[in-house]
Amino acid sequence: MSKKNVARTVGRIFLGSFLVFAGVSHLTFAREEFQAQVPDWVPLDPDVTVLASGVVEVGLGAALLVARKRRGFVGVLAALFFVAVFPGNIAQWLEHRDAFGLDTDTKRFVRLFFQPVLIALAIWSTRTPRRTSAGSSDS
């Protein structure tokens, strides 16, 4: 296994573990904190939204950890999930809502720049390396 493939595997395991942990925390000890990220325009009750997103996170995280044949598809789904929840991060910043130690506008704003990193990691860590004509991977 190449160094790049090892790095991708480590990234995928990190991201999968992160999502499982975040999902479990949505369902248990951090439900109220996550409700601070639900924008007012979401038509569901904030607690229902947090519970639903927690279930999705656990499922995506578990799939990242165990899926082999559909790994790239799961990576795309995880990236789309990160895109879908990004408005919640923006709402937390714009509406000045404290949660998870993000108690200033600056901290909430800086956090916004981590979402593209999560999206990129979801895609990159699950990408199937291309093969060269000689059969070795080149990415």
Rank of each mutant, 00 (worst) to 15 (best):
R97W: 08
A79Q: 07
S137A: 12
A62Q: 00
W41L: 13
R70I: 11
L51E: 10
D98C: 05
G135C: 12
D105N: 15
L112I: 06
V56S: 05
R8T: 00
A120M: 12
D105Q: 11
E57D: 08
R70E: 10
S137R: 13
L102A: 11
T128A: 11
R108S: 04
L64Y: 03
A7W: 04
L27R: 09
K107P: 01
H96E: 14
R108E: 02
L77M: 14
F82H: 12
S25T: 15
G88Y: 02
V56G: 04
A30Q: 13
T28R: 07
G59Y: 02
V38D: 07
S139K: 03
F86Q: 02
L94K: 14
L51F: 12
T132K: 14
S17N: 05
A134G: 07
F18Y: 15
L65K: 04
S133V: 13
P87T: 08
Q115G: 05
K3S: 12
A134W: 01
A91M: 02
D45M: 08
P39F: 05
S25C: 05
P43A: 05
A84W: 11
V10A: 14
R97I: 10
G11C: 08
L64C: 11
R70T: 15
S139A: 13
V85D: 06
T128L: 06
E95C: 03
V58A: 06
R70S: 13
D98T: 14
E57G: 01
L44N: 09
F73G: 12
V42N: 09
E33H: 11
A62Y: 10
I119S: 04
F18Q: 04
F86V: 05
F29G: 03
I123F: 08
G75P: 02
V56K: 07
V58E: 06
A7G: 06
L60Q: 06
G72R: 11
R68L: 01
D40R: 13
W124A: 11
L19H: 03
G75A: 09
W41T: 13
R108K: 14
I123A: 00
E33S: 14
D138H: 06
P87F: 09
